[in-house]
């Protein structure tokens, strides 16, 4: 049971980060970013490339200082930056034009789908279908054999948490906190929240709509990319083709929590992570089916999700 809870919390933190990026883009621009899963994969594969090959002339082991290997955090930051630039370009060159020219909001969906195809195709061409993985960050494991953690809980079974997973979980939690704090307390954060809540009013307050929409898209893409890096190290590896599936997961999360709301994305991420973790130990292969059925039932009672605005 403890193992299930820990797994759920762990994937929940990662999922929340994906959902946060998606919900930010949706809240700001009313664009459903189909390419979010692909951005996540791209982030993971950029991290993989840097960790494995370094920066061309600089080999990856050049970043070991005082016996600590700094290549992974550096790679993670690079992945974030690459994705931020990509996101900013997408917004500025593609989405902005289409939003301005088209008659319907929904036309951006087509564009988003096309960018998803584009990333999918490019990733497959560059990286192939092979599973890419990196070595564990740190050795060691926390285990109940050494030290019982929650002895009071019944169904307690053997419990393992490798140190590298713990480390990655902590990084994910810290990133969520940083994001929430950034949205609350910084100037761009406040501008983006205002834009998401009332675009016209924000404009009248002197918020530069173009600039902050672009920043928002960049931050959303960056979160997806960095989560890709984190999950690359946490799971067995990442495949160039799994982007679509990850997008679908992210959609489930933001529907659960309510689209366009930060708290909803976090809640959705953790709930889905927990449901999957519990489901996999009781239901096996049927987990995703049961989750979908539950989601349909839940949305038919509460169409706007846990804390979303009605109709997004």
């Amino acid at each position: 049971m403890e193992q299930v809870v820990v797994n759920g919390l762990f994937s929940g933190a990662q999922y929340s980060l994906i959902a946060l990026g998606l919900t930010l883009i949706f809240g700001l621009m009313n664009v459903l970013n189909f390419a979010h899963g692909q951005m996540y994969v791209l982030g993971g594969l950029v991290t993989y490339t840097i960790v494995t090959f370094g920066f061309g002339f600089i080999p990856p082991d050049a970043f070991t200082i005082f016996g600590i290997d700094f290549i992974f955090p550096i790679a993670l930051i690079c992945a974030g930056m690459v994705l931020a630039i990509l996101g900013a370009l997408f917004e500025k060159l593609l989405f902005r034009t289409v939003i301005r020219r088209s008659k319907r909001d929904e036309s951006t969906m087509l564009l988003a789908a096309a960018t998803a195809f584009l990333l999918d195709a490019s990733l497959l061409l560059i990286f192939g279908e092979k599973l890419h993985s990196v070595p564990d960050l740190v050795d060691g494991i926390i285990s109940t054999d050494l030290e019982p953690v929650f002895p009071a809980i019944p169904f307690s079974d053997s419990f393992n948490l490798p140190y590298y997973k713990l480390l990655l979980g902590v990084i994910a939690f810290v990133m969520i906190l940083l994001f929430v704090a950034g949205m609350r307390f910084t100037r761009p954060g406040r501008a983006m929240r205002a834009l998401a809540q009332d675009r016209m009013a924000a404009q009248l307050m002197g918020v530069n709509v173009g600039r902050y929409t672009m920043i928002g898209f960049a931050v959303g893409a960056m979160l997806a990319g960095m989560t890709g890096g984190l999950l690359l190290a946490a799971s067995g590896g990442i495949q160039a083709t799994e982007g679509g599936a990850k997008s679908i997961l992210a959609f489930e999360m933001i529907m659960l929590g309510g689209a366009g709301v930060t708290g909803g994305a976090i809640a959705g991420g953790f709930i889905l992570g927990m449901m999957q973790s519990v489901g996999h130990s009781f239901l096996g292969n049927f987990t995703d089916l049961v989750i979908f059925a539950a989601l349909v039932v839940f949305l038919s009672i509460r169409p706007q999700g846990l804390m979303g605005k009605p109709w997004g």
Partner: peptide, 11 residues
């Protein structure tokens, strides 16, 4: 001050 108030409802 726009028509229909337009507050930022969640702030």
């Amino acid at each position: 001050v726009p028509e229909g108030r337009r507050v930022f409802p969640f702030m």
